[in-house]
Design a protein around this nucleic acid. Structure first.
Lengths: 245, 245
DNA sequence: CCAAAAGTGTTATCGCTACACCCATGA
DNA sequence: TCATGGGTGTAGCGATAACACTTTTGG
């Protein structure tokens, strides 16, 4: 994303404005980040109590204004790290929210992103220090501004995207069982899938490595654990590959 | 997109800034619009000679800054109409282009849209008055800033989207023949399709109305014309419907 | 020994692919 | 009459969908 091809004395927006675009009205630009996790066989949304006015102490997704010195994408990465401490997280642009009166505090447009994270024990700490809460997606409260809209747009995108990219794995621990994976897809698709067909199909894709361990947390018999084979997936993705479940 | 739930004395961003968000640095927000058309069995990009510095007279897609009084989406609609005179055009958000130095004139982020239009005789006029040109997509020149990137992102989106929504019809005249439609899909997908299978599949969807007219422009025999049945499509789309060709 | 989840194969159906010949027409 | 593009059907194959019983083990 760098294109430092221009020599300039001063990079600040104000200085650059002076030369060109003098008629354009500046607008505040924010990023918001919808964070989804998966735990206890449920999709969850990470929500925070907003720290500033307006709407202080109401539920909100995380966000920040974009600094002049960072790209919009970088701002999203920064925000995600500030709030969760996590880096190298799956994150994709969701869309631009630009209604005139979406924020009564100012004319602010927001570029929204959605992130998928694995719920380990680690995050819980961060969650507590930031007055955050994981809401089950079926019980998301009223959020500020258009954030509820962002959440439902995220779900639709997830639903669609899951069909052609293996994003489910972003939500699961590194080692997971087939039933866990199936459960996740059933949640995303909102319908049940046939156990035998699911297993057959996912294994035939040849992108899972079977481990010797079993996960006994959800049954007496225990289910074998698998690991997503990223590099084998990459190979296949280049040849064209669909992931329809 | 309206949410006039807040009573305020003054809607200008400056006035609102005074109350909240005083620490945030304003950034210029632009919309850019990638316009595709289809003619002569080819996908074409509408390009314009830029009117202002920097990069005056270089090829560019159309764009504008977002006014404080309009939503981002409205700005895109306005721009499209200003340059082409067209209203009620298929247009969708493409993405946010927000690199720090993407525009040497100022810190500008651009929300890009892509539009699909039918090439009738009408537009040609507009094109001439605006120093515009339809480039065959295989021969798009160097455009300013990151506009070439926007174009290739549009093509990828078109390629993907064509599989699950009937956007092809946006590019064809109201009345079209099956071979015309097939040609368009071959162009979008970049591969040839079997004539019999294509016809069978598209007709089995039951979203085309056959007319009594024939289009004789491309063959002696002439090909029957069809019309896209929007309402029947809507019905089916609600029941879930894929459009894979 | 039993409850609860994991694991496994086969068959019928459907949709996709591949493929070749006649038709209508204007020049 | 012939060159050009339009229009049609069928058979094989592969993928999907439907379906029920056995295995393991902790309590």
């Amino acid at each position: 994303m760098s294109c430092q091809n221009f020599s300039m004395n001063n990079n600040s927006p104000t200085a650059r404005n002076a030369a060109y675009y003098t008629e354009a009205a500046p607008i505040l630009v924010a990023v918001d980040c919808i964070i989804l996790g998966y735990d206890d066989d449920r999709l969850k949304l990470l929500s925070f109590k907003r720290k500033v006015e307006p709407f202080q102490n109401e539920w909100s997704v995380i966000g920040s204004f974009v600094n002049p010195s960072e790209s919009v994408d970088d701002a999203a990465v920064r925000v995600l790290e500030e709030y969760t401490g996590l880096q190298n997280i799956f994150m994709e642009p969701l869309g631009c929210y630009g209604a005139v009166d979406r924020d009564p505090g100012a004319r602010v447009i927001s570029q929204a992103f959605f992130a998928l994270i694995r719920l380990d024990e680690k995050e819980v700490q961060t969650v507590e220090t930031h007055q955050a809460h994981w809401f089950d997606l079926s019980a998301v409260p009223k959020l500020i501004l258009d954030h509820n809209q962002m959440v439902s747009d995220t779900l639709e995108k997830l639903y669609r995207k899951a069909r052609y990219r293996p994003i489910g794995f972003e939500l699961l621990p590194e080692k997971f069982s087939i039933p866990q994976l199936q459960n996740l897809y059933e949640t995303i698709y909102g319908r049940t899938l046939d156990r035998r067909n699911f297993r057959k199909k996912i294994l035939s894709m040849d992108i899972l490595d079977k481990l010797d361990e079993k996960n006994k947390s959800s049954s007496r018999k225990g289910a074998f654990l698998y690991r997503f084979n990223q590099s084998r997936y990459q190979e296949m993705a280049e040849k064209g590959f669909d992931f329809e479940m």
